[in-house]
Amino acid sequence: MISFQAVGKTFPRAPSPALKDVSLEVRPGEVFGVIGQSGAGKSTLIRLINGLERPSVGRVVTDDDDVGALDAAALRALRRRVGMIFQHFNLLSSKTVAANVAYPLKVAGMPSSAIGPRVAELLDLVGLADQAAKYPAQLSGGQKQRVGIARALANGPKILLCDEATSALDPQTTEQILDLLAQLNRELGLTIVLITHEMEVIRRVCHRVAVLDAGSVVESGEVAEVFLHPTHQVTRRLVADAAGLAAAKIEGGPPTLRLTFRGQATFEPILGRIARDTGVDYSILAGRIDRIRDEPYGQLLVSLVGGDVAAARARLTAAGVRLEEA
C-alpha cells in the first residue's frame, strides 16, 4: 500500500539529513505505527507519503503512485485518496463543523446536492451528528479531532495518515480517539499510518511498528514483539516509559528473569504450578498484565531461588513462556 525504498531526505541548509536510508512497507488494511523521540524525523516521514515533502533520494510509492515523480495535478489526485489528521487539528476556525467537513468534498468537485447528505453521514460516523452548526472554538479537543477525522475521511480515502493525532489530548480522550481509529480500520478496511512519541498509543492500536531514531529505522516488526522484547536502546527507553518494568532491579541480588506470557497463557497459573513441582521459590519484583491491541499479555520480572531452577526454566519454556535474563 505504501512503500519506502531507501529514502533519504535532507532539508536545504540543514546540517544533517532528517531521514537516512529508510525502507519500509505498509500493508493494506493494517495500522502501522512510527515511533520516535522529538526530532527523529517522524513528521518528515509521514509527509513524504502524501507528497507534502519530496524525497531527496530513494522512492516513496503510495497506492501505486511514485510520489516524488507526480506532477501537481496527479499529486492532488493522490492526496484526495489519502486522508490526514494533525496534532493541532488544523480546522478552519471561520467555518462550522459541517462546512469544515464539506470543504474537501467541494475541493473534489462533488455536486452541492450530494454534499449535505455525505456530511451528515460522516458526522454520524464520528459521533458528532448534533454538533454540525457549531464552530471549532466551541468544541473540546476530542471533538475537534473527530471533525478532523470526518474531514479526512470525506472523500473515502484508502489511507489515513495521523501526525501525532492524540498528542494534544488527555489520556481518556486519547483512548476514545484511538478506539475510533481502530474501529475505522476494522469496519472500513482503512490503512492507517500513525506517528507518535508514546509507546502506549502504539500498543493500543498498531499491528506493526517502526522505531525511528535520528532519521533511521532502528527496529521494526510486530508490535507485540517490539514492545515485549525491545532490542535497540531507544526502543527500550520508549517501552520502559510505558511498561514500568525497568525500575525494580536490585543491584547484587539474585539473577532476575523476565517472563513473558502471551495470549491464553496470561490467565493460567503456570508459574505457581511449576514452582511447586520443582521446589523453586520465586519473588516477583515487577509485573504488568495488559493487552496489546486485543491480545492479553503478562510480563513479570522474577528471581528464582532454591529447588531445581534449570527444570523450572525448561518447563516454563515448554509452557510457552518466554524467558529472558533481565
Binding site: 492532488r76 492526496r79 490526514m84 494533525f86 493541532h88 470543504y103 475541493v107 474531514r151
Partner: peptide, 17 residues
C-alpha cells in the same frame, strides 16, 4: 495558521481553492 493551509494542501486543494 500554517497548519490550516497545510491541511487544505493535504486534501488536494488547488491554490485557487
Amino acid at each position: 495558521d500554517r497548519g490550516v493551509i497545510e491541511a487544505a494542501q493535504a486534501m488536494g486543494a488547488t491554490p485557487r481553492q
